[in-house]
Design a protein around this nucleic acid. Structure first.
Length: 830
RNA sequence: GCCGGAAUGGCGGAACCGGUAGACGCAGCGGACUCAAAAUCCGCCGGCCGCAAGGCCAUGAGAGUUCGAGUCUCUCUUCCGGCACCA
């Protein structure tokens, strides 16, 4: 229980959290990197006197368990619990300073019941609601597919062409918090700018005008609404485009087979936005028209495969003259292009498209709005639309509500009962949790819960009549959106969290992959606010993570052999590289002699068989070498390119520390201090302390190497050796705790290095009487001089000019200017 | 396509506020030790020119600002992450 944490208001607290792993089977190198970084910070802060909490748990629900279940006919629960047991052993063998008494797994009822509890609160308040959402549908397996399971438009198991399908789903109203989630980003100085910027763009606040285009449908007066940030171009609208699911498209499809076929084609298209954005923009006229709200002009309505029903109103206005996409669309379908803005290139918008066409400028060809600039035009148009009740200024968000329903088994059951009389009824608190049966083996066709009467058949909590349970489960992002708060309240069975969360939250340092920059982090920020508003706890905590470190991915080289036209991927551990005299890779072959082809560097993946198993590394070199290498190889935010050879270097260094320290422990000690060595050691320590606070741990590891080099350069073991070793071991201890702990005791520095104070540089050791200055002529390095520390500018200038090589470049020329940078350089401008 | 990053020797990287580019390590080359190998230790190690002193070039490409640019500004290229059901 060395790492067990207890609330202690007398000490400053430091809650250090690494993103919890999905228990996929065994640790991968990304995990080892993530948790090593977290452990360095944890141990560093402990030595600095903080009350530190570093917990660990399991993000245990998810798709891979169901895939494994299908492959091995083992229930996802068993597979998951077995993986957890194995991976926990691996984490322990790496020596992470984790408080295991707080361990949690999201697939346990005592965890997920609070997902359910919070959901019912939100449901009753309207912050969780039901509407349709789009999913990938495999028509053969009759099942919903995850994006990952769609390979080139086809189902991964059946090969069937995947269809889009609209089904009822539950959504969380994250948009209700859009304003706050956006504004609060400014109050997060401990987050990387790039992450805040990505979140800002994702939330996507835009100011514009909602515009109504009246039309008739089956003798009924209706209005087609669109949102635009370019209301100033309204007079240039020449067509409208609607999504395939829009009522106008649905109506048109009913009367025209061709339109029906096109609408069908649009619906079959990709559901993923990334793909949707890259498909060829296609459209078809619906034969329907709307009236321009200001000019009354008739505008044709098209169905467009690029218009999303789930975003905004499911319709856009087409202004070909001033929008690149509309311009291409208009050219393709010979729609009119009507310039209404004077842009930097003039008043015409002839093909090809030029970016200037989209710039702001004064209105032209716009009747009463001619001559108005962007702001005035938007104001005038919005005012005129408002009078006609056909528009108003509006703030629009790119952020959409969060659809949490999954048509899968291995997740938190959504606590809703469907009653013929009462509708959707939230399961009351006393009936929670709605337990997920753990002995089910899915077969890939639909959700197995649908086939389990023992699960589905229940009574309506409101009227008591027979009713059916909802069988959808929750998105696993729900589980991971509040686990950090649960870690603070282990054993609490009456609430999500308790007052202990007030002590520990917010997380002081959160560490995880950059790939989570948007979704997981945004959902967690949302959930923290929901907990604040619904549980009465953590009233002062809106932001769950004060400081965020986004680590880079771990990459490895991949190799393949040609196996009869097919690529056989060879694990890098089984490849031998042949180098030429300069160290360049000349060729590579398998250990049994077959030629292999190098395929470049990339993420470790099963498909390319280039994963490096951390266990092999730990078995061969021990935990400290693995940890040291990972820290030393690259700064935490960079990608880390795996190299077995460099691991050897880390191992070699730790062996050198070990033998040096043990030799010293037996040696006679003189009391002399070595001034130069002390300067080197304390200068490195000063740098290391600066770097560790910047989270640049690789140079802290370098500093450890440099200190050892300085100690090895000493002619004899003296008091400086002892001082240097005590600094070295403490500096090293967060990275390689086992080696440091052992040597610390062996050298009789103390019982427990974790209880030793963090080393600070000695100002006396850092004092210097003389400094070396570099001499430049016109910014080019020409020599160096040694001057007394306090030398004035004139002395420095004289000394610089007296340098022989400097003279060669100054001779016969006029020195116009002398720049002296104290302690660094002098630049003579001639 | 949109949003966000990154690019420095053969390789990973260092260079704090714009001030000696390549610290530290890997690989490579040469040597010591050894019967031999492993391990360990010592030396060299961006490119070109030069006996040397030293010089010229060089931080993805091209421009700019500055006494001085890897670092700041603009344009471009390539690669990586995300795009709402992988986690």
């Amino acid at each position: 229980h060395s790492f067990r944490s207890v609330e202690d208001p007398a000490k400053p607290k430091f809650y250090c959290l690494s993103m919890f792993p999905y228990p996929s089977g065994k640790l991968h190198m990304g995990h080892v990197r993530n948790y090593t970084i977290g452990d360095v910070l944890t141990r560093y802060h402990r030595m600095r006197g903080f009350n530190v909490l570093q917990p660990m748990g399991w993000d245990a629900f998810g798709l891979p368990a169901e895939n494994a279940a299908m492959a091995n006919r083992v229930p996802p629960a068993k597979w998951t619990y077995d993986n957890i047991a194995y991976m926990k052993g691996q984490l322990q063998s790496l020596g992470f300073a984790l408080d295991w008494t707080r361990e949690l797994a999201t697939c346990r009822p005592d965890y997920y019941q609070w997902n359910q509890w919070l959901f019912t609160r939100l449901f009753k308040k309207g912050l969780a609601y039901k509407k349709t959402g789009v999913v990938n549908w495999d028509p053969v397996d009759q099942t919903v597919l995850a994006n990952e399971q769609v390979i080139e438009g086809r189902g991964w198991r059946t090969g069937a062409l995947v269809e889009k399908r609209e089904i009822p789903m539950y959504f969380l109203r994250i948009t209700a918090y859009a304003e706050e989630l956006l504004a609060a980003l400014d109050g997060l100085p401990g987050w990387p700018e790039q992450v805040k910027l990505m979140q800002k763009n994702w939330i996507g606040r835009s100011e514009g005008v909602r515009i109504g285009f009246p039309y008739q449908l089956e003798n009924e007066e209706r209005v087609l609404w669109v949102f635009t940030t370019r209301a100033d171009t309204l007079m240039g609208a020449t067509f409208m485009a609607v999504a395939a699911e829009h009522p106008i498209a649905v109506f048109a499809a009913k009367r025209d087979k061709n339109i029906a076929a096109f609408v069908d084609e649009c619906k079959r298209g990709p559901a993923m936005e990334a793909e949707l954005a890259q498909i060829e923009k296609k459209g078809m006229p619906t034969g329907m028209f709307v009236n321009h709200p200001l000019s009354g002009e008739k505008l044709p309505v098209w169905v467009g495969n690029y218009v999303l029903m789930g975003y905004g109103e499911g319709a856009v206005m087409g202004v070909p003259a001033h929008d690149e996409r509309d311009f291409a669309f208009a050219l393709k379908y010979r729609l009119p292009i009507k310039p209404v803005i004077r842009h930097p290139l003039g008043e015409r918008t002839d093909p090809p498209w030029k970016p200037e066409y989209a710039e702001y400028g004064a209105c032209i060809n716009s009747g009463p709005y001619d001559g108005l600039d962007y702001e005035k035009a938007v104001n005038a148009i919005a005012a005129d639309l408002s009078r006609k009740k056909l528009g108003e200024k509006q703030v629009q968000w790119r952020l959409r509500d969060w659809g949490i329903s999954r048509q899968r088994y291995w997740g938190t059951p959504i606590p809703i009962v469907h009653c013929a009389a009462c509708g959707d009824v939230a399961v009351p608190d006393e009936q929670l949790p709605v337990r997920l049966p753990e002995d089910v083996v899915p077969d890939g066709t639909g959700n197995p819960l649908n086939k389990l009467a023992s699960f589905t058949d229940t009574k309506c909590p409101a009227c008591g009549k027979p009713a059916k349970r909802e069988t959808d489960t929750m998105d696993t992002f729900v589980d991971s959106s509040w686990y950090f708060a649960r870690f603070c309240s282990p054993g609490q069975s009456n609430a999500m969290a308790d007052e202990r969360a007030n002590y520990w939250m917010p997380v002081d340092q959160y560490i995880g992959g950059i790939e989570h920059a948007i979704l997981h982090l945004l959902y967690s920020r949302f959930f923290q606010r929901v907990m604040r508003d619904e549980t009465g706890l953590m009233q002062k905590v809106a932001e769950p993570f004060t400081n965020l470190l986004t680590q880079g991915m771990v990459l490895a080289e991949s190799y393949y052999t040609d196996a009869g036209g097919r690529r056989e991927w060879i694990n890098p551990a089984n490849v031998e590289v042949v180098r030429d005299a300069k160290g360049n890779i000349a060729s590579a072959k398998t250990k049994d002699g077959r030629a292999v082809i190098y395929d470049g560097i990339g993420t470790m993946s099963k498909s390319k068989n280039n994963g490096v198993d951390p266990q092999a590394l730990i078995d061969q070199y021990g935990a400290d070498t693995a940890r040291f290498y990972i820290i030393f190889a690259s700064p935490p935010t960079n990608t880390l390119e795996w190299s077995d050879e460099s691991v050897e270097g880390s191992y070699r260094f730790l062996k050198r520390v070990w033998t040096f320290a043990l030799r010293f422990s037996k040696a006679a000690k003189s009391r002399d201090l070595d001034r130069k060595a002390r300067f080197r050691i304390h200068a490195e320590l000063r740098q290391a302390n600066y770097d560790i606070q910047k989270h640049q741990f690789n140079t802290v590891a370098s500093a450890c190497m440099k200190i050892l080099n300085a100690l090895e350069d000493l002619p004899e073991w003296n008091a400086t050796t002892e001082e240097g070793l005590s600094i070295l071991l403490r500096l090293l201890s967060p990275i390689t705790p086992h080696v440091a702990h052992h040597l610390w005791r062996e050298l009789r520095f103390g019982e427990d290095i974790m209880k030793a104070p963090w080393p600070e540089p000695d100002p006396v050791a850092l004092e210097q009487d003389e400094v070396e200055l570099v001499v430049q002529v016109n910014g080019k390095l020409r020599g160096s001089i040694v001057v007394p520390k306090q030398a004035d500018k004139a002395t420095i200038e004289t000394l610089a000019l007296s340098n022989a090589n400097v003279q060669r470049f100054v001779a016969g020329q006029h020195v116009k200017k002398v720049v002296v940078v104290p302690g660094r350089l002098v630049n003579l401008v001639v």
